[in-house]
Amino acid sequence: MDTETEKIVRNRVAELLNEDVEAFVVFVRKETEPRERITVIKGPEEAEKVALSPLSVNNTARVLLEVVNNFDGKVGVVAKGCDSKAIKGLISEGKIEREKIHIIGISCPGIVDYRKLIAFSPEDVIFEDGKLIIKPGDKEIPLEEVIHDNCRYCRSPSPVIYDEIYGKAREPFDGTDDDEIEKLPADERWKYWIDVFEKCIRCYACRSACPMCYCTECLVDPVNLAISPMSTAEEKAAYPRFLGKTVTPADNLFYHLIRVFHHAGRCADCGECERACPMDIPLRKLERKLQKEIKEIFGYEDEDIPFLAKLDIIPEGR
Protein backbone atom coordinates (compact mmCIF):
# COMPACT_ATOMS: atom_id res chain seq x y z
CA MET A 1 0.00 0.00 0.00
CA ASP A 2 1.83 3.05 -1.18
CA THR A 3 0.85 6.10 -3.15
CA GLU A 4 1.05 4.03 -6.35
CA THR A 5 -1.57 1.55 -5.17
CA GLU A 6 -3.67 4.40 -3.88
CA LYS A 7 -3.80 5.91 -7.38
CA ILE A 8 -4.75 2.63 -9.00
CA VAL A 9 -7.48 2.00 -6.46
CA ARG A 10 -8.80 5.53 -6.82
CA ASN A 11 -9.09 5.07 -10.60
CA ARG A 12 -10.67 1.65 -10.26
CA VAL A 13 -13.24 2.95 -7.77
CA ALA A 14 -14.19 5.73 -10.17
CA GLU A 15 -14.44 3.28 -13.08
CA LEU A 16 -16.52 0.81 -11.14
CA LEU A 17 -18.87 3.52 -9.90
CA ASN A 18 -19.41 4.44 -13.55
CA GLU A 19 -20.23 0.82 -14.30
CA ASP A 20 -22.56 -1.35 -12.23
CA VAL A 21 -21.39 -0.56 -8.70
CA GLU A 22 -23.78 1.71 -6.86
CA ALA A 23 -21.73 2.63 -3.82
CA PHE A 24 -18.24 2.03 -2.50
CA VAL A 25 -17.00 1.49 1.04
CA VAL A 26 -13.66 3.28 1.07
CA PHE A 27 -11.22 5.13 3.29
CA VAL A 28 -10.82 8.89 3.31
CA ARG A 29 -8.07 10.89 4.98
CA LYS A 30 -8.99 12.96 7.99
CA GLU A 31 -8.14 16.65 7.90
CA THR A 32 -6.86 17.17 11.39
CA GLU A 33 -4.74 14.15 12.23
CA PRO A 34 -2.84 11.45 10.36
CA ARG A 35 -5.67 8.99 10.40
CA GLU A 36 -8.23 7.65 7.96
CA ARG A 37 -11.87 6.86 8.42
CA ILE A 38 -14.32 4.75 6.50
CA THR A 39 -17.04 6.31 4.43
CA VAL A 40 -19.40 5.33 1.65
CA ILE A 41 -19.19 7.16 -1.66
CA LYS A 42 -21.91 7.02 -4.27
CA GLY A 43 -20.63 8.85 -7.34
CA PRO A 44 -17.43 8.68 -9.42
CA GLU A 45 -16.83 12.37 -8.75
CA GLU A 46 -16.26 11.54 -5.09
CA ALA A 47 -13.57 9.01 -5.93
CA GLU A 48 -10.79 11.58 -5.67
CA LYS A 49 -11.24 11.58 -1.90
CA VAL A 50 -10.38 7.90 -1.72
CA ALA A 51 -7.31 7.26 0.36
CA LEU A 52 -5.37 4.09 0.89
CA SER A 53 -2.29 3.82 3.01
CA PRO A 54 -1.06 1.98 6.08
CA LEU A 55 -3.31 4.39 7.93
CA SER A 56 -6.35 2.61 6.52
CA VAL A 57 -6.66 0.77 9.77
CA ASN A 58 -10.33 0.04 10.28
CA ASN A 59 -12.09 -3.06 9.07
CA THR A 60 -14.29 -2.23 6.10
CA ALA A 61 -16.34 -5.42 6.52
CA ARG A 62 -18.28 -3.94 9.42
CA VAL A 63 -19.42 -0.92 7.43
CA LEU A 64 -20.09 -3.09 4.39
CA LEU A 65 -22.41 -5.29 6.41
CA GLU A 66 -24.22 -2.22 7.71
CA VAL A 67 -24.80 -0.57 4.35
CA VAL A 68 -24.98 -3.41 1.85
CA ASN A 69 -28.73 -3.83 2.13
CA ASN A 70 -29.45 -0.11 1.75
CA PHE A 71 -28.64 -0.40 -1.94
CA ASP A 72 -30.39 -2.34 -4.66
CA GLY A 73 -27.33 -2.71 -6.81
CA LYS A 74 -23.79 -3.82 -6.17
CA VAL A 75 -21.74 -2.36 -3.37
CA GLY A 76 -18.01 -2.17 -3.73
CA VAL A 77 -15.51 -2.50 -0.93
CA VAL A 78 -11.80 -2.00 -0.50
CA ALA A 79 -10.56 -4.90 1.58
CA LYS A 80 -7.22 -5.71 3.12
CA GLY A 81 -6.29 -9.27 4.06
CA CYS A 82 -8.14 -9.28 7.35
CA ASP A 83 -11.10 -7.34 5.96
CA SER A 84 -11.53 -9.94 3.26
CA LYS A 85 -11.38 -12.69 5.87
CA ALA A 86 -14.22 -11.03 7.73
CA ILE A 87 -16.20 -10.59 4.51
CA LYS A 88 -15.66 -14.25 3.68
CA GLY A 89 -16.93 -15.19 7.12
CA LEU A 90 -19.97 -12.98 6.76
CA ILE A 91 -20.73 -14.51 3.38
CA SER A 92 -20.49 -18.04 4.76
CA GLU A 93 -22.83 -17.07 7.58
CA GLY A 94 -25.36 -15.76 5.09
CA LYS A 95 -25.11 -12.12 6.12
CA ILE A 96 -23.84 -10.83 2.77
CA GLU A 97 -24.52 -12.15 -0.73
CA ARG A 98 -21.37 -12.65 -2.75
CA GLU A 99 -23.08 -11.45 -5.93
CA LYS A 100 -24.00 -8.17 -4.33
CA ILE A 101 -20.50 -7.03 -3.59
CA HIS A 102 -17.40 -6.18 -5.56
CA ILE A 103 -14.20 -6.59 -3.60
CA ILE A 104 -11.04 -4.68 -4.45
CA GLY A 105 -8.51 -6.76 -2.59
CA ILE A 106 -5.45 -5.07 -1.17
CA SER A 107 -2.36 -7.02 -0.31
CA CYS A 108 -1.40 -5.38 2.92
CA PRO A 109 2.07 -4.45 4.18
CA GLY A 110 0.66 -4.00 7.67
CA ILE A 111 -1.09 -1.03 9.15
CA VAL A 112 0.24 1.72 11.30
CA ASP A 113 -0.65 2.64 14.83
CA TYR A 114 -1.80 6.21 14.22
CA ARG A 115 -1.19 7.09 17.86
CA LYS A 116 2.51 6.95 17.17
CA LEU A 117 2.11 9.65 14.53
CA ILE A 118 -0.16 12.17 16.17
CA ALA A 119 2.68 14.64 16.56
CA PHE A 120 2.66 15.17 12.79
CA SER A 121 0.11 16.94 10.67
CA PRO A 122 -1.73 14.68 8.21
CA GLU A 123 -0.36 16.15 4.98
CA ASP A 124 3.20 15.67 6.20
CA VAL A 125 2.93 11.91 6.50
CA ILE A 126 3.66 9.98 3.31
CA PHE A 127 4.10 6.24 2.79
CA GLU A 128 6.39 4.93 0.11
CA ASP A 129 8.08 1.57 -0.49
CA GLY A 130 7.48 0.25 2.98
CA LYS A 131 8.81 3.43 4.53
CA LEU A 132 7.18 6.29 6.25
CA ILE A 133 8.40 9.72 5.22
CA ILE A 134 7.83 12.77 7.36
CA LYS A 135 7.92 15.70 4.97
CA PRO A 136 9.64 18.45 6.93
CA GLY A 137 13.22 17.28 6.95
CA ASP A 138 12.40 14.16 4.87
CA LYS A 139 12.75 12.00 7.92
CA GLU A 140 12.43 8.32 7.11
CA ILE A 141 10.94 5.80 9.49
CA PRO A 142 10.72 2.11 8.53
CA LEU A 143 7.10 0.95 8.55
CA GLU A 144 8.05 -1.96 10.76
CA GLU A 145 8.71 0.47 13.63
CA VAL A 146 5.27 2.01 13.80
CA ILE A 147 3.25 -0.98 12.67
CA HIS A 148 0.39 -2.26 14.77
CA ASP A 149 1.35 -5.11 17.02
CA ASN A 150 -1.42 -7.34 15.72
CA CYS A 151 -0.09 -7.15 12.16
CA ARG A 152 3.13 -8.84 13.22
CA TYR A 153 1.06 -11.98 13.82
CA CYS A 154 -0.89 -11.68 10.57
CA ARG A 155 -1.17 -14.96 8.74
CA SER A 156 -3.06 -13.69 5.74
CA PRO A 157 -1.91 -10.23 4.70
CA SER A 158 -3.21 -11.01 1.22
CA PRO A 159 -6.97 -11.11 0.67
CA VAL A 160 -8.61 -14.52 0.71
CA ILE A 161 -11.53 -13.43 -1.42
CA TYR A 162 -11.52 -10.68 -4.05
CA ASP A 163 -12.54 -9.63 -7.54
CA GLU A 164 -9.32 -7.82 -8.29
CA ILE A 165 -6.16 -7.40 -6.28
CA TYR A 166 -3.44 -4.77 -5.94
CA GLY A 167 -0.52 -3.96 -3.73
CA LYS A 168 2.34 -5.85 -2.17
CA ALA A 169 1.82 -7.94 0.91
CA ARG A 170 4.09 -8.35 3.90
CA GLU A 171 5.52 -11.75 4.80
CA PRO A 172 2.85 -13.83 6.50
CA PHE A 173 3.59 -14.70 10.09
CA ASP A 174 4.87 -18.19 10.46
CA GLY A 175 5.63 -18.58 14.15
CA THR A 176 3.75 -20.15 16.99
CA ASP A 177 0.69 -18.71 18.64
CA ASP A 178 1.90 -19.62 22.10
CA ASP A 179 1.65 -16.82 24.55
CA GLU A 180 4.17 -16.31 27.31
CA ILE A 181 1.25 -16.08 29.72
CA GLU A 182 0.53 -19.77 29.23
CA LYS A 183 3.81 -20.61 30.93
CA LEU A 184 2.92 -18.79 34.13
CA PRO A 185 1.38 -20.70 37.03
CA ALA A 186 -2.41 -20.54 37.25
CA ASP A 187 -2.58 -18.05 40.09
CA GLU A 188 -0.33 -15.61 38.31
CA ARG A 189 -2.35 -15.98 35.14
CA TRP A 190 -5.49 -15.14 37.07
CA LYS A 191 -3.77 -12.17 38.67
CA TYR A 192 -2.56 -10.95 35.30
CA TRP A 193 -6.04 -11.00 33.79
CA ILE A 194 -7.69 -9.48 36.82
CA ASP A 195 -5.17 -6.63 36.72
CA VAL A 196 -5.78 -6.17 33.03
CA PHE A 197 -9.55 -6.19 33.28
CA GLU A 198 -9.59 -3.85 36.19
CA LYS A 199 -9.06 -1.16 33.57
CA CYS A 200 -12.04 -2.14 31.45
CA ILE A 201 -14.81 0.46 31.46
CA ARG A 202 -17.25 -1.71 29.52
CA CYS A 203 -17.81 0.83 26.79
CA TYR A 204 -18.30 -2.16 24.47
CA ALA A 205 -16.01 -0.66 21.85
CA CYS A 206 -14.50 -4.12 21.35
CA ARG A 207 -17.90 -5.54 20.57
CA SER A 208 -19.08 -2.64 18.46
CA ALA A 209 -15.93 -2.41 16.36
CA CYS A 210 -15.83 -6.13 15.63
CA PRO A 211 -17.00 -7.04 12.14
CA MET A 212 -18.14 -10.46 13.34
CA CYS A 213 -20.25 -9.10 16.23
CA TYR A 214 -23.44 -8.38 14.37
CA CYS A 215 -26.16 -9.61 16.73
CA THR A 216 -28.95 -7.09 17.11
CA GLU A 217 -29.34 -8.13 20.71
CA CYS A 218 -26.22 -8.69 22.74
CA LEU A 219 -25.96 -10.93 25.75
CA VAL A 220 -24.67 -8.11 27.91
CA ASP A 221 -27.45 -5.66 27.20
CA PRO A 222 -29.36 -5.82 30.43
CA VAL A 223 -32.85 -5.79 28.98
CA ASN A 224 -34.17 -8.04 26.32
CA LEU A 225 -34.50 -6.09 23.11
CA ALA A 226 -37.29 -8.38 22.00
CA ILE A 227 -39.76 -7.10 24.57
CA SER A 228 -43.07 -6.12 23.06
CA PRO A 229 -45.86 -3.87 24.30
CA MET A 230 -47.53 -7.08 25.41
CA SER A 231 -44.75 -8.39 27.64
CA THR A 232 -45.65 -8.24 31.28
CA ALA A 233 -43.36 -7.04 34.00
CA GLU A 234 -42.96 -10.64 35.24
CA GLU A 235 -41.88 -11.76 31.81
CA LYS A 236 -39.30 -9.00 31.54
CA ALA A 237 -38.01 -9.75 35.01
CA ALA A 238 -37.77 -13.46 34.30
CA TYR A 239 -35.69 -13.01 31.19
CA PRO A 240 -32.21 -14.33 31.94
CA ARG A 241 -29.74 -11.59 32.57
CA PHE A 242 -26.30 -13.00 32.95
CA LEU A 243 -24.43 -9.83 33.47
CA GLY A 244 -25.50 -6.40 34.64
CA LYS A 245 -23.40 -3.28 34.48
CA THR A 246 -21.17 -4.02 37.44
CA VAL A 247 -17.57 -3.34 36.48
CA THR A 248 -15.68 -5.54 38.89
CA PRO A 249 -12.63 -7.19 37.29
CA ALA A 250 -14.25 -10.64 37.49
CA ASP A 251 -17.39 -9.43 35.78
CA ASN A 252 -15.37 -7.70 33.09
CA LEU A 253 -13.50 -10.94 32.57
CA PHE A 254 -16.84 -12.75 32.34
CA TYR A 255 -17.96 -10.37 29.61
CA HIS A 256 -14.73 -10.64 27.65
CA LEU A 257 -14.64 -14.43 27.87
CA ILE A 258 -18.15 -14.66 26.50
CA ARG A 259 -17.44 -12.11 23.80
CA VAL A 260 -14.37 -14.02 22.70
CA PHE A 261 -16.27 -17.29 22.86
CA HIS A 262 -18.77 -16.02 20.33
CA HIS A 263 -15.91 -15.73 17.86
CA ALA A 264 -14.86 -19.35 18.08
CA GLY A 265 -13.57 -20.24 14.63
CA ARG A 266 -14.90 -17.00 13.16
CA CYS A 267 -12.37 -14.39 14.21
CA ALA A 268 -10.95 -12.46 11.27
CA ASP A 269 -7.76 -11.65 13.19
CA CYS A 270 -8.09 -7.99 12.23
CA GLY A 271 -7.38 -6.73 15.72
CA GLU A 272 -10.17 -4.16 15.70
CA CYS A 273 -11.11 -5.05 19.27
CA GLU A 274 -7.67 -4.27 20.56
CA ARG A 275 -7.34 -1.10 18.51
CA ALA A 276 -10.77 0.09 19.54
CA CYS A 277 -10.10 -0.43 23.22
CA PRO A 278 -9.58 2.96 24.84
CA MET A 279 -7.89 1.31 27.80
CA ASP A 280 -5.26 -0.64 25.83
CA ILE A 281 -6.38 -4.05 27.04
CA PRO A 282 -4.60 -6.87 25.18
CA LEU A 283 -7.83 -8.46 23.97
CA ARG A 284 -6.17 -10.26 21.07
CA LYS A 285 -4.40 -12.55 23.51
CA LEU A 286 -7.75 -14.14 24.36
CA GLU A 287 -8.83 -14.37 20.75
CA ARG A 288 -5.56 -15.86 19.58
CA LYS A 289 -5.59 -18.43 22.36
CA LEU A 290 -9.09 -19.55 21.39
CA GLN A 291 -8.28 -19.78 17.70
CA LYS A 292 -5.12 -21.68 18.54
CA GLU A 293 -7.03 -24.25 20.59
CA ILE A 294 -9.61 -24.65 17.85
CA LYS A 295 -6.82 -25.43 15.45
CA GLU A 296 -5.04 -27.78 17.82
CA ILE A 297 -8.01 -29.66 19.22
CA PHE A 298 -10.36 -29.66 16.27
CA GLY A 299 -7.99 -29.10 13.37
CA TYR A 300 -10.28 -26.38 12.10
CA GLU A 301 -8.85 -23.38 10.32
CA ASP A 302 -10.41 -21.00 7.80
CA GLU A 303 -12.89 -23.35 6.22
CA ASP A 304 -16.00 -22.56 4.25
CA ILE A 305 -18.29 -24.19 6.81
CA PRO A 306 -18.64 -22.29 10.08
CA PHE A 307 -16.89 -23.99 12.97
CA LEU A 308 -19.97 -24.76 15.06
CA ALA A 309 -21.81 -26.16 12.06
CA LYS A 310 -19.05 -28.68 11.41
CA LEU A 311 -20.11 -31.75 13.35
CA ASP A 312 -17.59 -34.36 12.29
CA ILE A 313 -14.72 -32.94 14.31
CA ILE A 314 -15.38 -34.16 17.82
CA PRO A 315 -12.09 -34.93 19.56
CA GLU A 316 -11.81 -38.22 21.39
CA GLY A 317 -10.47 -38.56 24.89
CA ARG A 318 -11.18 -35.06 26.11
Binding site: I181, A186, D187, K191, W193, L253, L257, A264, L286, E293
Partner: peptide
Protein backbone atom coordinates in the same frame (compact mmCIF):
# COMPACT_ATOMS: atom_id res chain seq x y z
CA UNK B 1 -29.41 -35.50 16.78
CA UNK B 2 -26.51 -33.14 17.29
CA UNK B 3 -27.08 -31.08 20.44
CA UNK B 4 -24.47 -32.84 22.49
CA UNK B 5 -21.84 -32.29 19.80
CA UNK B 6 -22.32 -28.56 20.30
CA UNK B 7 -22.05 -29.05 24.02
CA UNK B 8 -18.82 -30.98 23.62
CA UNK B 9 -17.24 -28.26 21.50
CA UNK B 10 -18.27 -25.55 23.90
CA UNK B 11 -17.16 -27.28 27.06
CA UNK B 12 -13.82 -28.41 25.68
CA UNK B 13 -13.04 -24.89 24.55
CA UNK B 14 -14.42 -23.25 27.67
CA UNK B 15 -12.21 -25.46 29.80
CA UNK B 16 -9.19 -24.41 27.76
CA UNK B 17 -10.09 -20.74 28.10
CA UNK B 18 -10.75 -21.05 31.82
CA UNK B 19 -7.34 -22.63 32.18
CA UNK B 20 -5.80 -19.81 30.20
CA UNK B 21 -7.19 -17.15 32.48
CA UNK B 22 -6.02 -19.10 35.52
CA UNK B 23 -9.34 -20.50 36.70
CA UNK B 24 -9.39 -24.16 37.77
Amino acid sequence: NVGNYYAKKRIVLLKEMLDFIGFE
